[in-house]
Design a protein around this nucleic acid. Structure first.
Length: 302
DNA sequence: GCGACAG
DNA sequence: ATCTTGTCGC
């Protein structure tokens, strides 16, 4: 047959759906002046419903004894257990203060398990999409795909075998966050690493969550993030001894949660895994150097 | 009015 | 994401 059979993978289908939602969300945003308030109907009914789902959720949560899994980042670093893994990539964008269009995109590749920077690139980019909560990828992904393509062209032998992304993977309102998005468009395995919990599917930064965080004593300790639908969406990981605040790891593309957590843990000298941290440092520095803050220094006497 | 809101 | 200095500690 002449017609090219366009077979969509489940991930690609998910992406297509999200793209539709994104354009919808942007349309709403553009007409934000028109308030679309819902008629409250019956307040009592709503409240009753809310309390009921709340109670149901709480009972489910208490049954899910998401006990702390004790880990050991030092041990992971001594014995990573990823034979064949030599290059881990990291990406990040940094922004100029009052500018929501121009940004610096950075891609770094680190040796593994040594964590030395073996490739780095910073590139000024123009962002097209605005930042809309839940649609982060639409703003940041295009520039990063281009960065990967430049590396592919420049030196394929430096192509990372896995990419750490700052943002979530399946820990997302539609189960398809930044790390999934970038993974599908590049074909690379991706891991989502967020610094804050995205409160979705019943996951909440409440007292219970804070208590679980307090139970994380050492680097490597972690616990499952189980949504109210029963799915494990990611893990809260204490990435090093120094910082008590965990990072949130979730599956992006072509990697299991277990592998993702071990990999991220073995990449942490500090709270943020080195590949992302190095990309972050480099893109910030680039902005700092090339965009003198003429806003701040006013009276400079000659 | 208050909280959420990955980056 | 960005706005921001010093400071306490190893």
């Amino acid at each position: 047959m002449e017609s090219a059979a366009v077979v969509e993978s489940p991930e690609e289908a998910k992406l297509a759906t999200l793209e539709e939602e994104e354009s919808g969300a942007r349309g709403i945003e553009n007409e934000a002046a028109v308030s679309v308030k819902q008629e409250p109907g019956s307040v009592d009914e709503e409240e009753e419903m809310r309390l009921e789902t709340q109670a149901q959720w709480e009972s489910e949560q208490s049954q899910l004894k998401s006990h702390v899994i004790t880990g050991d980042t030092e041990e992971w670093q001594r014995n990573p257990g990823f034979p064949g893994l030599q290059r881990v990539g990291g990406v990040d964008l940094s922004f100029i203060k009052g500018d929501d269009v121009n940004a610096c995109a950075s891609l770094v590749v680190l040796s593994y398990p040594g964590l030395e920077v073996i490739y780095e690139e910073c590139q000024m980019v123009c962002l097209t999409a605005p930042y809309v909560a839940g649609f982060l990828a639409f703003r940041e992904v295009p520039s990063l795909v281009k960065a990967i393509e430049r590396l592919q062209e420049e030196d394929t032998s430096l192509m990372p075998q896995v990419l750490l992304v700052d943002g979530n993977g399946i820990l997302h309102h539609r189960g398809f966050g930044f790390a999934c998005h970038l993974g599908v468009l590049t074909g690379l395995p991706c891991v989502g690493v967020a610094k804050n919990l995205l409160q979705v599917d019943g996951l909440e930064n409440n007292d219970r969550h804070k208590e679980q965080i307090r139970e994380l004593q050492r680097g490597g300790d972690r616990f499952c993030l189980t949504g109210s639908t029963g799915n494990v969406l990611g893990m809260a990981l204490r990435s090093c001894d120094k910082s008590a605040k965990p990072i949130y790891v979730s599956v992006g593309h072509k990697i299991s949660l277990e592998s993702a957590v071990l990999l991220v843990g073995s990449c942490c000298k500090y709270r943020t895994p080195e590949p992302i941290r190095q990309a972050d440092i480099r893109s910030r520095e680039y902005i700092r150097k090339n965009f003198p803050e003429h806003v701040k220094t006013e009276g400079q006497p000659a």
